[in-house]
Amino acid sequence: MLDHMGFRVRDLVSARRFYEAAAQAVGLAVIDNSPTSFLVVRSAGEPIPFLWIGTDKPSFWAAGHQVSASPIHVAFRAPDHASVDAFHRAALAAGGTDNGAPGPRGPAEMGYYGAYVLDPDGNNIEAGYRAPRHGS
């Protein structure tokens, strides 16, 4: 549904350390984009859709935009429960702050298992796995 999205960060080095660890845990990659930004993608060979993360202010953003003035929420799809657990551990080890340990989320019939970590700028980053639904 989405082609891309992006947001600014204060410190590119700490953001990249966090997103490399978190992305790798759920089977995604971080690739270079420019000296002031990077992309989270499926792989270098499949760079769209992408999540742009950088320190520059894109020309089309409003003048009053401030980094993390309104934190965002991004959820990465994980291939299984173990990947959600690995995401949580890796993101914390890379400078994230726990915002919800791995476990079931929402109504049981959704079959959703997720974990939440705040990135270095306070954005809520999630990894989640949805169990296959039978009989639908």
Results as ranks from 00 to 15, higher is better:
Met1Tyr: 14
Leu2Glu: 13
Leu2Ile: 10
Asp3Leu: 14
Phe7Gly: 11
Val9Cys: 05
Asp11Leu: 13
Leu12Arg: 02
Ala15Phe: 04
Arg16Asn: 11
Arg16Asp: 12
Phe18Asn: 00
Tyr19Asn: 00
Tyr19Thr: 01
Glu20Pro: 00
Ala21Lys: 08
Ala21Ile: 02
Ala22Leu: 06
Ala25Pro: 06
Ala25Val: 02
Ala25Cys: 05
Val30Trp: 08
Val30Ser: 04
Ile31Cys: 00
Asp32Tyr: 04
Asp32Gly: 13
Asp32Phe: 12
Asn33Ile: 02
Thr36Tyr: 06
Ser37Thr: 03
Ser37Tyr: 02
Leu39Ile: 01
Val40Lys: 07
Arg42Phe: 00
Ser43Pro: 00
Ser43Glu: 02
Ala44Thr: 01
Pro47Asp: 12
Pro49Ile: 01
Phe50Leu: 07
Phe50Pro: 00
Leu51Thr: 00
Leu51Ala: 01
Trp52Arg: 06
Ile53Trp: 01
Asp56Gly: 03
Phe60Lys: 01
Trp61His: 11
Trp61Phe: 08
Trp61Ile: 01
Ala62Pro: 12
Ala62Lys: 06
Ala63Gly: 01
His65Ser: 12
His65Gly: 06
Gln66Ala: 14
Ser68Tyr: 10
Ala69His: 05
Ile72Met: 14
Ile72Phe: 11
His73Cys: 07
Val74Asn: 07
Val74Leu: 15
Ala75His: 01
Pro79Trp: 01
Asp80Ala: 11
Ala82Ser: 14
Ala82Pro: 09
His88Met: 11
His88Asn: 14
Arg89Pro: 07
Arg89Trp: 03
Leu92Ala: 06
Leu92Trp: 06
Ala93Asn: 13
Ala93Asp: 14
Gly95Asn: 04
Gly96Arg: 10
Asn99Phe: 06
Asn99Leu: 00
Ala101Asn: 10
Ala101Met: 08
Pro107Ile: 06
Pro107Cys: 02
Met110Leu: 15
Gly111Leu: 10
Tyr112Asp: 09
Tyr113Gly: 12
Leu118Trp: 09
Leu118His: 13
Asp119Asn: 09
Asp119Pro: 03
Pro120Lys: 02
Asp121Arg: 09
Asn123Gly: 09
Glu126Gly: 11
Glu126Lys: 11
Ala127Gly: 12
Ala127Glu: 03
Ala131Met: 03
His134Ala: 12
His134Arg: 15
Gly135Trp: 01
Ser136Lys: 13
